[in-house]
């Protein structure tokens, strides 16, 4: 029932949500990523959608908050050093000792992925959603999901090898 509410009430809002995101974030890809991420998050809590009188309003509010968070994050990152390397901690010789455990290393790497890539890699590799399912939930194309998934997986491998080779 709750998934039906999502498919009937939330997913059809996609183009409206994209319009709002474009207006706040300006960049097309950023807006697309924001919408996908918010839709995925709402999907994951869709069991609780039934208690809202106006689930569409919840979706719009969630997207606006998400866009604001992204804008704040961009401003914060601009104020910090650019091109932060995920493995920059590993320049510290103690990092290799502190994070010997593979699970810790990989958790750390995955937690530092861009949030949409993080969600997609977890849905695919932990929760065994198929790419087509993720695309259906987010109202996007399988190709777009594969692109984010590929980037996430390659980054995880790259960072893992950098850290584990120390």
């Amino acid at each position: 029932m709750s998934k039906e509410i999502y498919l009937k009430n939330i997913l059809p809002l996609r183009s409206r949500l994209l319009g709002i995101a474009r207006g706040m974030l300006y960049e097309e890809q950023d807006a697309e990523d924001a919408v996908q991420e918010v839709l995925l998050r709402i999907w994951l809590v869709s069991d609780s959608l039934g208690k809202y009188d106006n689930p569409q309003a919840v979706a719009v509010a969630a997207l606006k908050n998400h866009c604001l968070d992204r804008l704040k994050k961009v401003r914060h990152e601009q104020a910090m050093a650019e091109d932060t390397d995920i493995a920059s901690d590993s320049d510290n010789p103690y990092y290799a000792l502190e994070h010997k455990d593979t699970e810790e290393i990989l958790t750390d790497i995955i937690d530092k992925l861009p949030s949409l890539q993080q969600m997609i890699i977890k849905m695919k590799d932990i929760h065994n959603y198929e790419v087509d399912e993720i695309a259906h939930i987010t109202g996007t194309t399988a190709e777009a999901v594969r692109m984010n998934l590929s980037r996430a997986r390659r980054r995880v491998r790259e960072e893992y090898l950098k850290i584990s080779e120390r």
């Binding site: 593979t102 699970e103 990989l106 958790t107 977890k122 590799d125 932990i126 929760h127 065994n128 997986r153 995880v156 491998r157 893992y160 090898l161 584990s164």
Partner: peptide
């Protein structure tokens, strides 16, 4: 294959 072993093992454990 060590990176893939680590990564796949990690996800299996998480699942």
């Amino acid at each position: 294959y060590r990176a893939e072993q680590a990564i796949f093992g990690y996800f299996e454990q998480q699942a």
